[in-house]
C-alpha cells in the first residue's frame, strides 16, 4: 500500500507556492493525478487539487502541457 506523501513528510498545510512538491502530482500533460495513483488521503487530495489550481491561476504551473 502506498503511503500518503504529506503525512509521511509531516506537511500539514499544502501551499500553492511550493510548486516543486505540486509538480510531483501532475502527469506529463499537466493534469492532476488520480487519487488512486497519488496514494494521498481524500482530505489531502482535495487540498492538493485546490493548491494546484491556485498555482495555475497565478501562472506558477501550466493549465496544460502540449
Amino acid at each position: 500500500m502506498k503511503q500518503d506523501y504529506f503525512s509521511a513528510n509531516n506537511i500539514k498545510y499544502i501551499d500553492y507556492k511550493d510548486i516543486e512538491i505540486l509538480k510531483k502530482f501532475l502527469n506529463p500533460n499537466g493534469k492532476i493525478m488520480n487519487h488512486k495513483r497519488t496514494g494521498v488521503t481524500s482530505k489531502n487530495q482535495r487540498e492538493l487539487a485546490s493548491a494546484i489550481k491556485h498555482a495555475r491561476f497565478l501562472g506558477l504551473l501550466p493549465f496544460m502541457v502540449k
Binding site: 509531516n10 506537511i11 500539514k12 498545510y13 501551499d15 500553492y16 507556492k17 511550493d18 512538491i21 497565478l58
Partner: peptide, 15 residues
C-alpha cells in the same frame, strides 16, 4: 491576485 484564508505558521520552510 487572490486572497486566501491560511495558517499563521510558515508552511514553505518546513518542507
Amino acid at each position: 491576485f487572490f486572497i486566501l484564508k491560511t495558517a499563521k505558521e510558515n508552511t514553505i520552510a518546513a518542507k
